[in-house]
Write a protein that binds this DNA or RNA. Structure first.
Lengths: 84, 84
DNA sequence: TAGGTGTTTAGACAAATGTCTAAATAATAT
DNA sequence: ATATTATTTAGACATTTGTCTAAACACCTA
């Protein structure tokens, strides 16, 4: 839960999630959408992976990142606890 | 949205929200539930207020904090965008 | 085996964060 | 008035965070 909120507490990381909502993308493709350096984006992806918000799959030299919804459900559950 | 995620990115602040879920409480009552100093809790309450997650109401020397659900709905909306 | 491309790791650094103590403010009670 | 209680403000300080550049690693191609 800590890693989840930590990962979500950054606008760039949230934008990455919204980007991946459309389709999986490679690290490079993701980086191209932002003005930060590739190492910076790589670090953001690492935090998203630590929170289990994305999964990564290496195919050759490319690493493809995919959105992982299951952990969002955990957040949803936490949130719904307040709606009652 | 930034202030919201920032406010949620701390276990103490999330615990405060869960505490206020039961009923409104004064700053002192809230502080009594934690081992941190009162100024520290006061600061946490300030961040929660900035995110509009709680509202505060001063009556005499006591300040009562109340959970505000409307902004949680905003988060819920953001979350549901991924569920489709 | 080289050289090129995609990605991550390492290390540095300024800015933000969470905590504390001491002091200030505000309301109440004697 | 003075002291007591409730809360916040101010300032300090160590830790964490987001960013960068330079270098390393991994894979591919000729």
């Amino acid at each position: 839960m800590n890693a989840l909120f930590k990962a979500l507490n950054d606008p760039t990381r949230r934008a990455i999630l919204e980007l991946l909502r459309e389709q999986p993308r490679t690290a490079g493709e993701i980086a191209d959408h932002f003005q930060f350096s590739k190492p910076t984006i790589s670090h953001h992806l690492d935090l998203l992976r630590q929170a289990d918000l994305v999964s990564s799959d290496k195919q050759g030299q490319f690493v493809t990142y995919t959105l992982n919804m299951t952990v969002m459900d955990e957040l949803l559950g936490w949130l719904l606890q307040f709606k009652s």
